[in-house]
C-alpha cells in the first residue's frame, strides 16, 4: 500500500492507542483539528477526548503534565507543534525528563514521547524550520529518533511509545508528504541500528531525517559519474550505531556527513569526530560535512541557499582527496 509518512505516523498513534490503554496523546490542536500537520487526525473521534486531547497553549506545562502522568502509570505522547515552539519545554526536558531515572537511581522511569516536527524546506516563516536535534542529543537521558522512511516512521514511533525511557521523536516536516510502499503494521530495525540504504564502495554518506533523500539522490548522480557511494540512514541519533557507521567507513575509506542543522557544535560534528576516532587508519581523506550554514534559519525565499542539496553533496564528495591533493578550502589562510 502506498502511504505518506504523515499517515504512517497517524497509524502508529492509532495502533498504540488501540493496543495500550495507558497511551494518551495531547498537545496543542491535536484534538478535533488533528494537529497542524494532521498527524493526530481522527484520533479524538475514534478514541474520545480522554485519549487524545487539546491542552492550554504552554509547552512547558504540556511536558510537565506528561512527566507527572508518566510517573503515575500513563504513556503520554505529546506534540510540540513546531521545533522552535518546543523551547519553552526545554527546561522540563533537560532538568527533569532526561534526569528522572538517573536521579532516582532507576526508581522512576518516564515512558513518554515528545514529538517534534522539525527542520525546513517547506517555506515556513521564522520559527518554523529549526533543526533542534543537537539540543536533545546533547542531553544524556533522552533518546533522539528521526525517521526518514515511511516504514520507519511507523515502526520507530511504535518503538518510542513502548520504550521505558523518554524519546524525543523528531519528524522532518518536509517528509510528512513523502510516499512509499509499505504494509502496516510494520516492524523495522530497532533503536540503535543504522541502515545501509544504498550500498557502495567508494565513499560513505551519513544522513538522517530530512537529508536522507538528498544523500540518495546524490549517490544516484554520482553513480552516473562512476562513483559508488554508500548511503547510511542513521535513524536514531541516541542511541547511536557506531558499529554500522565505522564498518562502512573502514570499507570505503571516505566519509561525508550530510545534515540540515548548522554545523558548528552539531550532531554532524559529533559524528565526524566519532568516525575519525574509530576509522583514522582506514581514511583516505578527512571526514567532511555538508550542513546548513551557521546562521539563524533563513526566510523562505533564501532557504534554498541554506539547505544541503545534491550539488553541494557532490561537490563535497569531489573534495575527498581522490588525487591526494590537500583540500583547498582548508588551506592555511583560506578562512580569512
Amino acid at each position: 500500500m502506498t502511504l505518506t509518512m504523515g499517515k504512517a505516523l497517524n497509524a502508529a498513534l492509532r495502533d498504540a492507542l488501540r493496543e495500550d490503554d495507558s497511551v494518551v496523546v495531547f498537545g496543542e490542536d491535536v484534538g478535533p483539528l488533528g494537529g497542524v500537520f494532521r498527524v493526530t487526525d481522527g484520533l479524538t473521534a475514534e478514541f474520545g477526548e480522554e485519549r487524545c486531547f487539546d491542552t492550554p497553549l504552554a509547552e512547558s506545562g504540556i511536558v510537565g503534565l506528561a512527566l507527572g502522568m508518566a510517573m503515575n502509570g500513563f504513556r503520554p505522547v505529546v506534540e510540540m507543534q513546531f521545533d522552535a515552539f518546543a523551547y519553552p519545554a526545554f527546561e522540563q526536558l533537560a532538568s527533569h525528563v532526561a534526569k528522572m531515572r538517573n536521579r532516582t537511581r532507576g526508581a522512576v522511569g518516564l515512558p513518554m514521547v515528545i514529538r517534534v516536527p522539525y527542520a525546513g524546506g517547506i517555506g515556513g516563516v521564522e520559527h518554523h524550520s529549526d533543526s533542534s536535534e543537537a539540543y536533545y542529543a546533547h542531553t544524556p537521558g533522552l533518546k533522539v529518533v528521526t525517521p526518514a522512511t515511511v516504514a520507519d516512521a511507523y515502526s520507530l514511533l511504535r518503538e518510542a511509545i513502548a520504550d521505558p525511557d523518554p524519546v524525543v521523536f523528531m519528524e522532518a516536516k518536509k517528509l510528512y508528504w513523502s510516499k512509499d510502499e509499505t504494509g502496516l503494521p510494520v516492524r523495522t530495525a530497532p533503536f540503535g541500528t543504522a541502515e545501509v540504504r544504498r550500498a557502495g564502495s567508494d565513499a560513505t554518506l551519513l544522513a538522517y531525517g530530512p537529508t536522507l533523500p538528498v544523500a540518495l539522490q546524490a549517490a544516484e548522480a554520482a553513480a552516473g559519474d562512476g562513483r559508488q557511494l554508500e548511503v547510511i540512514d542513521l535513524r536514531t541519533l541516541v542511541p547511536f550505531d557506531d558499529e554500522t557507521v565505522a564498518a562502512s567507513v573502514r570499507r570505503t575509506g571516505r566519509c561525508v556527513v550530510v545534515a540540515e542543522a548548522s554545523g558548528f557544535a552539531s550532531v554532524s560534528a559529533e559524528i565526524a569526530a566519532r568516525v575519525q576516532e574509530r576509522c583514522f587508519h582506514s581514511l583516505w581523506a578527512p571526514v567532511l560535512r555538508v550542513t546548513g550554514w551557521d546562521i539563524p534559519y533563513p526566510p523562505p525565499v533564501l532557504e534554498k541557499y541554506h539547505l544541503p542539496g545534491v550539488d553541494r553533496v557532490l561537490d563535497t564528495v569531489d573534495r575527498l582527496q581522490w588525487d591526494d591533493a590537500p583540500d583547498s578550502r582548508f588551506l592555511s589562510g583560506a578562512a580569512t
Binding site: V63, L65, L67, G68, M69, M71, N72, S95, M100
Partner: peptide, 20 residues
Amino acid sequence: APQCTPLATHAPHAVGLAYA
C-alpha cells in the same frame, strides 16, 4: 517526588500525577 531545585518546575508534575 524528588526534591526539586529549579524553582516551580515540579509544580506541573504534581498536576500530571494527580490528573493521572
